[in-house]
Design a protein around this nucleic acid. Structure first.
Lengths: 337, 337
DNA sequence: GTGAAAGCGCTAACAA
DNA sequence: TTGTTAGCGCTTTCAC
């Protein structure tokens, strides 16, 4: 293994001090009035021997790591994966790397991850917070770390965040079903106290109440397996023959619902209309093509990174926290008639 | 921001030396014959004040970071996302964190990423290598870093790797189509010199040759957009009316092919039979349900991590590189008749 | 304009 | 059994 060069090696080879090398490498030559000729000589030599500063040592000294900690609920979920991908790209363009992990919506795991990120001296955090994590996020903010939440927020903790207009999304979708003559509309969701789920529920309820229709909500345990979710929905069909439309609270439930509807032998949309949350490429090709509430993935990623970069680049302490709410789009296809 | 405690603070508060604290914290108390009572006192105090060692400083000193660099082709691709997720979980169980990034199959980007990973002192690398990266991987190995490749390998570079039996996968799928009476079977793939794509092509050709059928291969540029791929396939249909079956070389092509088939108004499998590479949850629900070659995702992740951990934990230099080839499964559904 | 030296927090050889 | 001390590679103050 070839010996890694250090700044001292460079300084010695050039018969100058490492301070000078450091200044030149950090673009402070002008300020320090170092001769152009020396600067050139150093830069050329550095390039020639392929010297790379040890960023670990640099971080230890400066306290900055140029690493962003990204905690998503589950990187294997399409929604989070595509957002993570874009966040990654944008972060790199800004000179930052990403350390990421999936929280599984598990509070304790998330706490451990935050601790690990702190140990690693990450400069900023992007998090889809599970509930119960309020104190840890507060600590982060109190200690001066930039934190941007997305997908949901924590009502009791003032932070920057980027979310979509969940309430309007489901309100609008429900209203669409109502306008198409559906009456027994069910909302299948997770039993969750997270803001995005609560708002989606509220949107559904608001539309139903406005039309004086009876609401029917099925709440499923977040940790239920895909198979058991399908089974639950099948049971539900069994006991509720008159349901004529379903709105799903998130993408995983939508997929399971599709499976259950198929298994139950129901015709879509004749027997039952369906609207999913989050759009998938394949929904378009499904028979019938699935109507879905599409979140603006690129916009979410853009806003998250911009917010974080803003915080990272300003030293001014307490600014007002920014709350960004983006619009979703109801993509009407065949499953909702 | 509350002052971060250092090991010196702990030592001073307890009126002992930081060496002692360091030994105790690193589980070397026994070995150093430090009194149980002292150990207990230190551990309790550390816990009480919530002291966390600065892992950056530790890394600088030890040269180990307990971070694994993961480079996948594209984290937003379902196949890579699910594997990344499992690798992440398994890595954490082994006390390692992951820094990841997507290569986009871009050689230069990958080189830069490897450089960044090196700067960050990652302990090991898991990579889906783009072509042209041979030298960089060789350097990594020469310099003693554990490297595990997956999904494909580099024939000219001896490394550990985990792949699937691509040749048999497509051979088997093609054979299946032949057995079902198809003759004009097309293989739609990327023009790529990567091993996995080459082998998939070979499997198809082998089966066709064995049955004395004429091969027909459509190679698509890797960087083509989804829309242009769909268009290409539509054009192809236009010019080749007699095609009665298509085998797709990877998941993205499969999705585009599905879209194109739908647009062309072809009936599946009556007019044309389809087999995709990589299975998706929704394939089962598609009409008709899509036949697919499923890769053993968990097994791949397991083997990758095990291989890497083995390398990480053994100091013995040159061991023989391990090549692991896993079986795929042809999941027969309706689209292939 | 340039250099000496302190120190970021930690580990480990060596002393005591 | 415990403490002293020398770095790991870098930045930055202060002196020349």
């Amino acid at each position: 293994m070839k010996k890694k060069l250090s700044i001292v090696d460079i300084a010695n080879s050039l018969n100058i001090s490492k301070t000078t090398v450091s200044f030149i490498l950090n673009g402070r030559a002008q300020e320090k009035r170092i001769s152009e000729e020396l600067v050139k000589r150093v830069l050329e030599y550095v390039k020639e021997v392929g010297y790379k500063p040890n960023s670990l040592a640099k971080s230890l000294r400066t306290g900055k790591s140029h690493i962003i900690g990204l905690l998503v609920q589950d990187i294997s979920n399409h929604f989070f994966a595509t957002i993570a991908r874009q966040i990654e790209d944008l972060a790199y363009k800004n000179g930052y790397k990403i350390i990421y992990s999936s929280t599984d919506n598990d509070t304790q795991k998330t706490q451990e991850l935050i601790t690990m990120f702190r140990e690693r001296h990450v400069d900023g955090y992007i998090i889809t917070p599970p509930d119960g994590i309020e104190d840890d996020i507060s600590d982060l903010i109190r200690d001066g770390f930039p934190v941007v939440l997305f997908d949901r927020y924590l009502p009791s903790v003032p932070t920057d965040y980027v979310v979509v207009d969940n309430l309007f999304s489901t309100y609008n979708a429900t209203q669409y079903l109502i306008d198409n003559g559906h009456k027994n509309i069910v909302f299948i969701t997770y039993s969750s106290i997270q803001t995005q789920m609560i708002e989606r529920l509220e949107g559904y309820e608001k539309a139903m109440h406005q039309s004086k229709l009876k609401t029917s909500v099925t709440e499923i345990d977040f940790y239920a397996s895909a198979d058991s979710i399908v089974k639950l929905i099948l049971d539900f069909f069994e006991q509720n023959k008159d349901v004529d439309a379903i709105l799903f609270g998130n993408n995983h439930l939508g997929k399971c619902g599709l499976k259950a509807t198929r298994k139950a032998g129901k015709r879509v949309p004749e027997d039952i209309a369906l609207i999913a949350f989050d759009d998938y490429e394949l929904f378009e090709l499904y028979t019938p093509a699935v109507t879905a509430i599409a979140q603006p993935i690129s916009e979410i990623a853009d806003n998250v990174i911009n917010l974080l970069m803003e915080r990272l680049n300003t030293t001014t302490e307490e600014q007002k926290k920014q709350h960004i709410t983006l619009a979703t789009e109801l993509i009407v296809r065949d499953s909702s008639k």
